[in-house]
């Protein structure tokens, strides 16, 4: 028992430094969500439940708008599908890595947000620590930050009567920063440019409601057609 507790503490100590950027981002974004949700009449308890069970940044922001518009189960399903369709691509990237997770695999899949995905791809455990324990700890910590942020925002929202118009820009800013971070590595630039070009064209051609799904299809076609030159550049 003591040995297991000790090992868990070690995993938290090793994982925590890697999660600090997500800690700051999630508490801030989660709070923005909690405030937004509160402004639509759903308090901290709702922020807690949604943060814990949905656990999706952009998905939850969009959910607030749908909840405010009234009871619409089909709309909720379709919009969530469109907003979170990109997670299918994350799953594809994690097929191999998650094989060794055993019982925790289901939780790893559930908690696969944009930011956790990025951390799992980019971090390695210290010598002597199992990668599964290390990465599971990262996933749990990120989830915890998000829930704390959501609840804090819900509490703060009811305490401070402030104008929240424009607070959803925090998402845009976060993705701009992630984009710039990926841009630093030269081999990421071709896929990044393809993604940028495809999404702008799809937004203009297919309109705001259909562009994510059309863009995903276009991306698969482009990456399929130019597989050889892209693989040469990105590396196998």
């Amino acid at each position: 028992m003591d040995e297991i507790t000790e090992r868990k503490k070690g995993a938290v100590r090793a994982a925590f430094p890697h999660t600090v950027p997500v800690l700051t981002g999630y508490v801030f974004m989660g709070a923005a969500f909690g405030i937004l949700l509160e402004s639509r009449g759903y308090g901290p308890v709702w922020a807690f439940v949604m943060g814990l069970l949905i656990y999706a940044g952009s998905g939850q922001f969009v959910a607030v708008g749908i909840m405010a518009a009234g009871f619409d189960p089909l709309g909720a399903f379709l919009v969530t599908l469109m907003v979170n369709a990109r997670h299918v691509f994350y799953g594809i990237s994690m097929l191999e890595r998650f094989k060794k997770f055993g019982k925790a695999k289901l939780y790893m899949i559930f908690s696969l947000t944009d930011e956790t995905f990025a951390l799992l791809l980019s971090t390695r455990p210290p010598a002597g620590m199992r990668e599964e324990n290390f990465h599971l700890t990262i996933s749990i910590l990120d989830h915890l930050y998000w829930v704390v942020g959501c609840v804090a925002g819900g509490v703060l929202g009811s305490a401070l009567p402030i104008n929240t118009l424009g607070i959803d820009f925090v998402m845009t800013a976060l993705f701009v920063v992630i984009f710039l971070e990926q841009w630093k590595r030269k081999q990421n630039r071709t896929p990044a440019l393809i993604g940028l070009g495809a999404s702008i064209v799809c937004r203009l051609v297919f309109g705001p409601d259909w562009f994510i799904l059309s863009c995903m299809a276009v991306l698969i076609v482009i990456f399929g057609l130019f597989k050889k030159p892209i693989e040469r550049e990105v590396g196998r």
């Binding site: 791809l121 896929p191 940028l196 562009f211 863009c215």
Partner: peptide, 18 residues
């Protein structure tokens, strides 16, 4: 192969999405 190149394309898509 898709799993390797898509993450970078998707970030750009998310910016446009916002």
């Amino acid at each position: 192969y898709l799993g390797r190149v898509l993450p970078y394309a998707i970030t750009a898509m998310l910016v446009v999405y916002c």
